[in-house]
Amino acid sequence: MLIGGINPICSQQLKATGSDQQLHVVEVLPSADTLPANLLRMYVRFSKPMKPVGNLEKIHLISEEGNEVPGAIFNNVHELWNREQTRLTILLDPSRVKTGLLSHDERGRALVQGRRYELVIDALTDVDDHMTAPFTKSFYVTEEDFSSPDSDLWHIKMPRAGSQTPLVIQFPAMLDQLSLLQRLKLTDQENRPVAGKVEIAHQETAWRFYPATDWKQGGYILYVHSRLEDPSGNNLNGLFDHKAGSLRNDSEDTIESMIITIPE
């Protein structure tokens, strides 16, 4: 993954047992163990390139009674993989997440507030056919997230000019890791990308930028794309589950810019 020619570091690298050669789940995102009832998207990152078909049937949502919640995972026709086939996007069935649809009304959400669940990933197959043990992520479900990410509520921790300490943006609630990696961009005043490393930390509530060279005093520009999403599909422009006419902008593609002035 690259952003402006830089390598992001993923903070939550869970070390699985077994040798490095053995296929294992590296992480499941969101990394928090408390997730909203209207969660739309999760990611599973594997240690090796995977077979890009036939995996969704082997990923299960299990209730605290130990029963599979049927129809929770959206069985997409094309599985959504990154180019390297190491990260799978899982959608919780959007027709159950979204209010007003037949499926939502008849079956309700797969995740119920106040209950515990496990996402169980069966022993899957990588491109060389090696098997691994199942992986489980346990989490607790809280109330629906009906708030749009809002850049006015972000807290920015400024580094000092002449240092390479990170520029940190703290969000009041978790955002989607992939979205954070591609919907934020730091440039200098001439719109040239700033070289450095991005780290997503604190369970996807912080974006840290480590510059490759010392910060200079003065202005930088942080661009924020309106499609920056949280794991429930809410973006800067409005909620996934929004009311008619409530989107902030007719266009789904607006870009905010924030001037960041690095102090002396």
């Binding site: 990696l181 591609q182 919907r183 961009k185």
Partner: peptide, 10 residues
């Protein structure tokens, strides 16, 4: 801004 081209994450 060419976010996408620079970020094969998506």
């Amino acid at each position: 801004l060419v976010f996408w081209e620079e970020t094969p994450a998506s």
